[in-house]
Design a protein around this nucleic acid. Sequence first.
DNA 1: CCCTTTTGTAATCTAGTTGTGACGGTCGAT
DNA 2: ATCGACCGTCACAACTAGATTACAAAAGGG
Lengths: 233, 233
Amino acid sequence: MKKIVLIEDDADLFALLKYNLEKEGFAMVGAQTGKGAIELCRRERPDLILLDIMLPDSDGLDICKGIRQHPELAHLPVIFLTARATETDRIVGLELGANDYIVKPFFVRELIARIKIHFRGQSAPNRLLKAGPLELDRTSCRVRLLDSEVSLTATEFRLLEFLMSRPGIVFSREQLLDAVWGHDRAVTDRTVDVYILRLRQKIEADAVSPNFIRSVRGFGYSFNEPAPVLATA
Amino acid sequence: MKKIVLIEDDADLFALLKYNLEKEGFAMVGAQTGKGAIELCRRERPDLILLDIMLPDSDGLDICKGIRQHPELAHLPVIFLTARATETDRIVGLELGANDYIVKPFFVRELIARIKIHFRGQSAPNRLLKAGPLELDRTSCRVRLLDSEVSLTATEFRLLEFLMSRPGIVFSREQLLDAVWGHDRAVTDRTVDVYILRLRQKIEADAVSPNFIRSVRGFGYSFNEPAPVLATA
DNA sequence: CCCTTTTGTAATCTAGTTGTGACGGTCGAT
DNA sequence: ATCGACCGTCACAACTAGATTACAAAAGGG
């Protein structure tokens, strides 16, 4: 869950944003004055900062400058919220190191969308497939079982990746050959059996592992859904 | 120098933007139709894409979606330029994967400031890449291993830089050729092997060095993550 | 212009991977 | 219970991808 620091002196707007952003699943920390904003950020270590420019006691632009100078905070995205809409205002804001500049009045949903842009990318949506003690990392092509690495061959990896990314769905050997081996394959469908076997030997070899791969007689294979019960016994 | 692809059907605006952005030091490539926009991007490999939403022959939103699906282009920043200013329009645009959404008419200088935001960050942060006893300094183009300098050739350096700056991620020979040799290369993919070998001879020659570069059979190569364990004696 | 370094290709070698046929067990339907 | 279809398992032969070496062409530096 991402944490956001909100610096905004208008109490109504402050409450409105806090309410809406919390509803959106962000952890909100706020202040209604600019004083101590930097200390607040250092303490809270947020993932993003929403900053009003015109504050009663200090200038949002200065706060932003301060943030950019702190090595621990410098990389954080800063979004300005302001009523100042002239060209110069905007440019000064953006060139000072802000990552976005939103002019009041604005749509709350647009603000949310813009906040999410800054969290996108880092998350790398589906690089990691997990199923209980089994993890498959698509970017590093590694598979871990109970925190120790399992070494798979390329074909084994692609087959497991395909199945894990569509848990619960049963695929025929035909479909698996198309998906993993490619359309222009020249491979017997019994080959799939062998690879399922090899995968099972590698990821279901130990006692604790559940039956990750399910055979569905007459249809094909599927990866068992989320939390497979420790079947045994 | 950064390269920008501009897709905009209005000839006047197209010319205005091209002029101003080139003056600002960007390399501009453009089209006035949406057709073939994706192919254009794949060919030109820009660093950012400016996209009009309402094009005579196709929808900018679709183009953006297409870009996000191409693995080679998915990470590129996309900025929408559009006259559509309703709340829904903005949110759809932003949630579709755009990185910014600018409503016409806009200030050219603001557009420039917003473009620069996306290039910021990349430039400053890590001029020094470190991995255990290995250091790569991007600005001085030097590599040190155990505090003594290693002399690499230009291609070796670029390859190592590319891999080190994305630790843990596996790249195919294809991807490495695109990234290090350039997409207009005329080079066999076996060449990558040879350069990996040369790098290994230079940075893994001594006994203390861990295996910095990992071969992932069937996939490609990756730089080992942060503190590579001295694997299994 | 010559010599050195760099660059890319081709060929070779090897360990590991891949796909197949065979065999036997199991499941389910009759 | 019997039969046939289906699946799990094994061992083997062909093959591939990667490491390595050697070499020719290109680039660079004096």
